[in-house]
Amino acid sequence: MAATAHSDDYVIEIEGLWTRFGDFVVHRGVDLKVRAGEILALVGGSGSGKTTLLRQMLGLETPHQGSVRVFGQRLDTADTVALRALRNRWGVLFQEGALYSALPVFDNIALPLRELKCFDEALIRDIVHLKLAMVGIEARHAAKMPADLSGGMVKRIALARALALEPELVFLDEPTAGLDPDRSDSFVALIRSLHRELKLTVVMVTHDLDTLFELTTCVAVLADQKVIANAPVREVIAIPHPFIKTFFLGERAQRAIEVIRDYPFVV
């Protein structure tokens, strides 16, 4: 049983991945590797297939060619038992939170724990309250329905749900989209502290340059249907590619770089 993370291993390995929508080729031989403990951001222009790639890493879509391995396991050939065990090792934060609207906050977070059918309610109750405290949600909100919450709270609770099974790997789809700058700062700080505490590997899709500069250890750039760079953000900026130039060195980006805080990030 593989219950521990091997710190030197690659958590995600993508090799020679092709994706086509009809005649339109989205990915032309994408290679990408993510090491344990990294915070990787996937960037790219609109329609460059970031979300598709993320969905392929989650096994929600199958590439036309090439392989995606998560924790050394090929997603397309894994049997249901292996896939189920694999899915208990990762957590996903969807862009809109994807909280189950029919369940109150407490049950949303308790659901993955209850699905394991091996923890008793007293334990689950404490775990849920712990997760709520970790994402900074007060216990009195536990009985509310998702429809009664603000966007920022939905994101935090969705993160608490993603972390319910203490995953080693967390996927974040646009974690700061739709949050005000203050909220998005605190969300970034939250992910950073959780990463430090729980030794998470984080893979995220983001457009937010502040998030990129402050949080990531690695940036993978999707352009020309390939991953053209996968390196720390300072090295990526130096690459002379038109997309990288406009994305990182445009006017907006310059303002972000000016305020970049030198964060001594150690994994």
């Binding site: 208990n88 394991l116 923890f119 008793d120 203490e166």
Partner: peptide, 19 residues
């Protein structure tokens, strides 16, 4: 941890062991 305690996928055997 969750993985070890639940034996990967949970179930009755894991529940008995946890108890």
């Amino acid at each position: 941890n969750v993985q070890g305690l639940s034996d990967g996928a949970g179930g009755a055997r894991a529940r008995r062991r946890i108890a």
